[in-house]
């Protein structure tokens, strides 16, 4: 079953571009990454899903319900954490969280306590006295306190130190093991890589690709770095599938895509000092997609 189903979602701000024909779906129990640079349309998509803004065209269902018509019903099951969190400054953390809990007709007090302990959050402080990171923790607690079936995170890690980020990811993984679906938007690709099963890549308001993280990697270039004992002949690397060849003294670097056997045979002919073959990280894959898109457009 698809928890989120987006069909041709479009949002224009006057003449300015928002998002254009965004279509993808998120399956139940999935951690779905939503990546793209700042201003690509991630927040616009998410804010439309939460009916904070209304689409110009297209539609979406969440948990089988219409995102606009059934918004209040949907939101009972959704936890949301924005990138920048703001709360009523004059309230104490616990009062804010209790207020937040009062919208869901269930007792959330033990969950609030448990989450606050995990995140090391002082419930008796006033919101205005909290640092940015601590406010973020309040955001995490208020996003999770009602045990939502779907968690929507819009660049959630800013302001969290690495340790707290780890705790946060652990929390998300625990929720996911309980069957909770997560939509995770980010421009930091390593965190998406760490957490997500599938990703949608968005650029200039359009979805460029929806792919499994593993497939993305498989179908991609591998990074080769070879050190030879004697300088090698550049001709040896005049080989189909090789890209971005750099030869400097005894060091050879290139990207390769295709059958690995012939290239390994060719490398075996060299007087090898050391060799590294690496998976590209998502950042490189990402750049690759962007380049391809741009080239495609230039040809047109």
């Amino acid at each position: 079953m698809n928890v989120i189903e987006i069909n041709g979602l479009t949002k224009h701000y006057g003449k300015a571009r928002g998002i254009e024909d965004v279509t993808f779906s998120v399956k139940e129990g999935e951690i779905f990454g939503f990546i793209g640079p700042n201003g690509a349309g991630k927040s616009t998509t998410i804010r439309t899903l939460l009916s904070l803004i209304y689409p110009t065209g297209g539609s979406a269902t969440i948990l089988g319900m219409d995102m606009i018509k059934d918004a209040p019903e949907i939101k009972k099951q959704v936890g949301y954490l924005p990138s920048e969190v703001f709360y009523y400054d004059n309230m104490k953390v616990i009062d804010l969280l209790n207020y937040s809990a009062s919208f869901y007709k269930k007792d959330c007090s033990s969950r609030i306590k448990e989450l606050a302990e995990r995140l090391d959050l002082d419930l008796n402080k006033k919101i205005e006295d909290l640092s940015f990171g601590n406010k973020k923790k309040v955001g995490i607690v208020q996003g999770l306190l009602h045990s939502p079936k779907l968690i929507i995170l819009d660049e959630p890690t800013s302001g969290l130190d690495p340790l707290m980020q780890q705790t946060f990811f652990d929390l998300l993984k625990e929720e996911n093991e309980k069957g909770v679906t997560i939509l995770f938007s980010s421009h930091i690709l390593s965190e998406v890589q760490k957490l997500c099963d599938r990703v949608a890549i968005i650029k200039d308001g359009k979805i460029v690709k929806v792919e499994k993280i593993s497939t993305l990697r498989e179908n991609n270039y591998k990074k080769f770095h070879i050190e030879t004992k004697t300088p090698a002949d550049q001709e040896m690397f005049n080989f189909e599938g090789i890209k971005d060849l750099e030869m400097e003294g005894n060091s050879i670097r290139f990207l390769f895509k295709g059958d690995l056997n012939p290239i390994m045979g060719r490398i075996a002919e060299l007087d090898i000092g050391n060799v590294w073959i690496e998976e590209p990280d998502l950042e490189e894959i990402f750049m690759h997609y962007y380049e391809k898109e741009d080239q495609g457009r230039e040809h047109v």
């Binding site: 939460l50 949301y80 969190v85 703001f86 009523y88 937040s100 919208f103």
Partner: peptide, 11 residues
């Protein structure tokens, strides 16, 4: 107070 995201994502 920039609390729209808080209040308007409630059910």
């Amino acid at each position: 107070e920039k609390t729209a995201d808080f209040l308007l994502t409630k059910p």
